[in-house]
């Protein structure tokens, strides 16, 4: 086990160091931040062109479209979570750290979500307006995405960690990750749709919140185990 000496940083400072490092790297690479955001905008704009221009029909599908666009944007962004670290060897170094890997993985997930997930959440009301989502659903949409997209990131992280060493991993990542996102998608879209018909928003957000807590508790453990399998 890890030798506990005075020279080794505590878990908290290791968490913060990983977080700062990843945010610093992300700030140098604007594309990683911009691409998921652009993808979200473009995919959401394709639906009115492909499906319908009728405001009423757009209203009906908008919650689902927004959630699926956010889901795909998060999935496509996932690939950059561990890849560059894997390629330059810093991931292998991370695994050698004496601090619990759980917290480093959590830090990496957090920074990745701040960079690629949060912009999508922030811009969602604008797209919601373009897709004719009723005005009273903006807040439910914003809140459900705010609580739900971190779950998507945490789940996606397991898939990326499992496939990080593979040559072609784009589709396999989607095949592994997408079925796992069903519960988030169900309650995310319900949280947007149902309050319009008098249901209580807080209940849906509570379920999403419970999923987020469960994902925070368990998913980094699975990601950490997957990284130990994939790297070395």
């Amino acid at each position: 086990m890890a030798p506990v000496t005075t020279g080794i940083a505590g878990t908290g400072s290791a968490f913060m160091a990983t977080l700062k490092r990843d945010l610093l790297i992300a700030s140098k690479r604007k594309n990683d931040m911009l691409n998921p955001f652009m993808f979200f905008l473009i995919v959401a704009s394709l639906f009115p062109i492909a499906v319908t221009r009728e405001p009423q029909q757009l209203t009906d599908i908008s919650a689902g479209v927004l959630w699926i666009a956010a889901l795909l944007a998060s999935l496509l962004a996932m690939d950059s979570l561990y890849r560059s670290d894997f390629e330059d060897g810093s991931l292998a170094l991370l695994l050698l750290c004496p601090q619990p890997l759980y917290f480093m993985v959590l830090a990496k997930n957090l920074s990745h979500w701040l960079v690629s997930g949060l912009p999508v959440v922030l811009v969602s009301p604008l797209i919601a307006y373009m897709l004719k989502l009723p005005a009273e659903s903006y807040l439910p949409l914003f809140l459900s995405l705010l609580v739900g997209t971190p779950v998507l990131s945490l789940l996606g992280s397991i898939g990326v960690a499992l496939t990080v060493g593979l040559g072609s991993r784009g589709l396999i990542l989607a095949v592994i990750t997408l079925p796992m996102t069903v519960p988030v998608l169900i309650f995310g879209t319900l949280a947007v749709q149902e309050p319009r018909f008098g249901a209580d928003l807080a209940g849906y957000l509570a379920i999403l919140g419970a999923q987020l807590l469960a994902a925070i508790a368990l998913a980094p453990l699975a990601s950490a185990a997957a990284l130990r399998i994939s790297v070395n």
Binding site: I172, I229, S230
Partner: peptide, 23 residues
């Protein structure tokens, strides 16, 4: 799909084991 994407038997075994537990 994960199994068939991985060449290394040992690694595939562990990766699929983890994915089965998560699944």
């Amino acid at each position: 799909a994960l199994r068939s994407a991985m060449d290394d038997n040992d690694k595939a075994a562990k990766a699929c084991a983890l994915l089965s537990i998560v699944g």
